[in-house]
Design a protein around this nucleic acid. Structure first.
Lengths: 109, 109
DNA sequence: TGGAGTGTAAGATCGGCATCGAACACTCGC
DNA sequence: GCGAGTGTTCGATGCCGATCTTACACTCCA
C-alpha cells in the first residue's frame, strides 16, 4: 500500500464531472459551506484541517459540511496522521462549471 | 396611471444587483425552479404565463416558485389582462452573475 | 500505555421549505 | 351580471437538512 501516512479508510470522493449542476448549486447555497470554501480558497492546498475553520457550528456539523462539499466535487481530502487535510479542487471544478467558483469567491455579497 | 392594461397591484421586483450570491444559488438549486427557468429561456419574452409550464406541482406551488425567482432577480412579471406574463432577465442577471445563467441552461445535468 | 487531539458515526431534535387544498381577487367574454 | 379562466394568499402538513450531543476510532507524543 505504498507510502500511506494513515491507516484510516480514505474518504469517498466525487469528481466534479459526475456532479449535477443542481447539486453544485445546493452545496454552495449554504452559508457555512460558502464560508468554508471562501476560507479554503485563501490558503495553500493541503494546509487547512477540518477543525481549523472559524465557523459557528460544532465539529460534527463541520464534518458533515465537508462531506457535502466532497460529494459536490468541491474539495479533496487526504489523511496525514491524525489530521485530514483539505484542498479546493479549483481546476477540476472550474472545468466542469466555468465561472461558478469565481462568482462565489468574489468579495461582494 | 397611463396605459395600464391591468388594475391588479404590480408584483414587487428585486433587481439582480440587490441579490446576494447565496440567494441566487438557492433560487436555482430547486428542481422545479430550474425547470421553469430552462423552459422560460426557450421562448420569447412576455409569451409564457405562469400556468403554461409543465411542472409536476399545483398552481399554488408554481406561483410560490415564481415569487422566489422574482425575489432572486431572475424573472420579471407584467400583468396583461387576466394573465401574468413572464420574462427571463437575461442581461441584468448576466451582468450581476456572469456565466451563472449559462451554466444552468446547459444541456448536461 | 495512557492521554490529548482530531475527525467520524449514530441518534435525536428542530426549523425551514415545498406542497396542497380551499378561499379569494381580478379579468374577460357571453 | 354571470361564469370561466388565471393567479395569489392563507393555513396546515410533511419532509429533508442543519445542528447538537454522545460515543467511538484513530494517530501522535510523552
Amino acid at each position: 500500500m505504498a507510502a500511506r501516512t494513515s491507516h484510516r479508510s480514505a474518504p469517498a470522493h466525487t469528481h466534479p464531472d459526475d456532479v449535477a449542476v443542481q447539486a453544485a448549486l445546493a452545496a454552495l447555497a449554504d452559508p457555512v459551506r460558502l464560508q468554508l470554501v471562501r476560507e479554503l480558497a485563501k490558503t495553500d492546498d493541503w494546509t487547512r484541517t477540518c477543525g481549523s475553520f472559524d465557523v459557528p457550528v460544532g465539529k460534527a456539523a463541520c464534518s458533515h459540511h465537508f462531506a457535502v462539499l466532497r460529494a459536490a466535487g468541491l474539495v479533496e481530502q487526504r489523511d496525514e496522521g491524525a489530521r485530514r487535510l483539505n484542498r479546493l479542487r479549483r481546476a477540476e471544478f472550474e472545468a466542469r462549471f466555468p465561472g461558478l467558483l469565481g462568482l462565489v469567491l468574489r468579495e461582494d455579497g
